[in-house]
Amino acid sequence: MEKIIEILHLSKTFGTHEVLKDINFSVDKGEVVCIIGSSGSGKSTLLRCINLLEKPSGGKIIYKGKNMLEGNHDIYAYRTKLGMVFQQFNLFNNHNVLNNCTVGQIKVLKRSKEEAEKVAMKYLQVVGMEQYINAKPKQLSGGQKQRVAIARALSMEPDVMLFDEPTSSLDPELVEEVLKVMQKLAQTGLTMLIVTHEMEFAKEVSDRVVFMDKGVIEEEGTPEQIFNNPVKERTREFLRRTLK
């Protein structure tokens, strides 16, 4: 299996607070990995470290055989290879739906406007938002915004998609439309790393589930292993609490 991203001994401290401790894991091409864990366990910080929105305190992030934390790598080019979807959508407020999906392609990837629009339309169709290309973000519902955010990230044609609790700030009735889109993407063979509190979803889509607790990876395995036969006491306790 080709590893897209490999993380070795990654650590992150804020002041004296050790938020990530010796994290080791990797994501294979085409794999869907879900990260679960209680609030404050460092899931978001891990994702943010992976695309260098947060500067890790130590360890290695290996992408295409190169450690991104060493030497002078073009971190901007690296980030285009990782599509990020945020809990708070973060659509560009000054751009309409279409331009949200094209501005990165045009300015960063230097694609022509025509090509960028073609690519954007392709992914807006995937998320079912192609009819809203003229809308501004503030005119959309949360679920629609998140679907556009997914299309924006896909339009950069990244190697891996990172999702940080994409449905956590949505009204319950809007969660489904976003999860459906993600499910569809998972089936297309896209590599995805998803932080989520949606346990049913994680059980269904993931090839592998990672359970994080207090800044460490406590346990990882197939969804069957983690949800049906967890080995660690902390995993069992977490699942008991969240699945009720």
Binding site: N51, F86, F89, N94, H95, K107, M156
Partner: peptide, 29 residues
């Protein structure tokens, strides 16, 4: 909102591109 900067960085924009394409248009308005 900090999220606007982060989203721009996440699509690979550098500081100048982020300013020109995302932040300043909103600031000017």
């Amino acid at each position: 909102d900090k999220g606007q900067f982060e989203a721009a960085h996440a699509v690979g924009m550098n500081h100048m591109q982020t300013m020109v394409n995302v932040i300043l248009p909103q600031v000017i308005r």
